[in-house]
């Protein structure tokens, strides 16, 4: 416990700081409601023409959209902006002076940043799409609970792994920012990759069938497509376990890569005296 203390403190400090941005949370929530409605209307229009062509039911697609909007801030959209600032201000030098494991320290802070941004928005979204919509008589457009206890239980590790995997991806981006002293390039590449390959643009099975073997094994699938399909039991039993294994595998690989890269980057920063 004592060994973990600085990392927990780093996490908590960042979490509290981000919670202060009340207007940002409300604005984010409003934005996500809008995007959700928009996506659902587009789905509904296409399902209205030819529902049989779809890989999942409309109700599941709607839940997929709401879940995605609720957990949007948990995805690795960009490198942690604090890293970019620290690089520019030279504050990153202080991190080297702390008697801590640099990777774990940044990882904890990044996790705090992502979770604090996501938590209030997810709560509001659950309230709006899960509770208010059915009460308003719009149950057909609502965020449905998991269909079974098994699905709900499987979603717990899936959620934890999507968070861990997301933070591991942000960490890689952070390290590239620290090494290249520039965040624009990384973010310009990361965001579109995320949108297409995580299943944010469309659930991955909506893309032409020939692409499935590839889309189902790449790391971004573990951020949205896999955990969400576990949630509404499109992936159940062995398929769900396979999905979890894929999430866990990529998380381990990417954390390992990040650890290798951070050591090299830190050494280089030391040599430059940056």
């Amino acid at each position: 416990m004592q060994a973990l203390r600085p990392y927990l403190a780093a996490f908590r400090a960042r979490f509290q700081l981000m919670l202060q941005y009340r207007a940002a949370a409300l604005a984010g929530f409003a934005t996500q409601c809008w995007w959700g409605v928009l996506r659902i209307m587009i789905f509904a229009a296409f399902y209205g023409v030819h529902a049989a062509a779809a890989p999942i039911s409309l109700a599941d697609a709607i839940t997929y959209v709401w879940l995605g909007q609720a957990l949007l801030a948990l995805l690795p959209w960009v490198a942690d902006p604090e890293i970019g600032q620290a690089v520019r201000s030279g504050g990153i030098g202080y991190d080297r002076l702390r008697p801590l494991d640099a990777y774990s320290y940044w990882y904890a802070r990044t996790l705090g940043w992502m979770l604090a941004r996501a938590a209030p928005r997810a709560a509001l979204m659950a309230l709006a799409a899960g509770l208010v919509l059915p009460l308003a008589g719009l149950g057909a457009w609502a965020w449905q609970p998991p269909p079974s206890l098994a699905a709900a239980l499987l979603f717990v590790p899936a959620f934890a792994l999507m968070t861990a995997l997301g933070a591991a991806i942000v960490m890689l981006a952070n390290i590239i920012v620290a090494a290249s002293l520039n965040e624009r390039g990384v973010n310009a590449v990361l965001t579109p990759l995320l949108i297409v390959f995580s299943g944010t643009l469309l659930p991955l099975d909506f893309f032409p069938d020939a692409l499935r073997p590839f889309l189902h094994v790449q790391p971004f699938a573990g951020l949205v497509d896999i955990p969400f399909r576990i949630y509404f039991a499109d992936l159940a039993g062995g398929a769900a376990l396979q999905g979890l294994a894929l999430q866990a595998g990529w998380t381990v690989v990417l954390i390992g890569l990040g650890r290798l890269a951070i050591d090299r980057t830190m050494r280089r920063l030391e040599m430059q005296g940056g």
Binding site: I42, A54, P208
Partner: peptide
């Protein structure tokens, strides 16, 4: 990438 999404939907569902 947005046009990819538009294309994928039309490709799967038709007009």
């Amino acid at each position: 990438i947005e046009i990819l999404g538009v294309f994928a939907l039309f490709d799967r569902f038709g007009p």
